[in-house]
């Protein structure tokens, strides 16, 4: 099974929180593969708004985006770009 992972640094002011979290989960849900983000010891399903919000990622923190399944590499690339681009915030 295809897998991919890459680090991303969160640039937007509020971190992955509130509206940016919604935007990120919506984006992640467009991919068919399984996607995750990881901060420290915690790893959550990136298609789960609750998981993502509970991770409470703040500005400047580095997280790991990973994916498993069809199109994993593309999903990781696009999601990392989306996060580093400020999550449309």
């Amino acid at each position: 099974m295809a897998t991919a992972s890459k680090q991303a640094t969160v640039t937007n002011e509020t971190g992955i929180h509130a509206r940016p979290a919604t935007a990120l989960v919506q984006k992640a849900s467009q991919f068919n593969c399984e996607v995750f983000i990881e901060k420290g010891e915690k790893k959550v399903n990136l298609k789960s708004i609750m998981g993502v919000m509970a991770l409470a990622v703040r500005k400047g923190e580095t997280i790991t985006v990973s994916a498993e399944g069809e199109g994993a590499e593309k999903a990781v690339e696009e999601l990392v770009a989306f996060i580093e681009g400020g999550l449309h915030d």
């Binding site: 919604t22 919506q26 399903n45 298609k47 789960s48 708004i49 998981g51």
Partner: peptide, 13 residues
């Protein structure tokens, strides 16, 4: 309500 809809589809939930 986008956030609510997302919650409603949340895999964890």
């Amino acid at each position: 309500f986008d956030a609510h809809l997302l919650l409603l589809q949340d895999p964890e939930l």
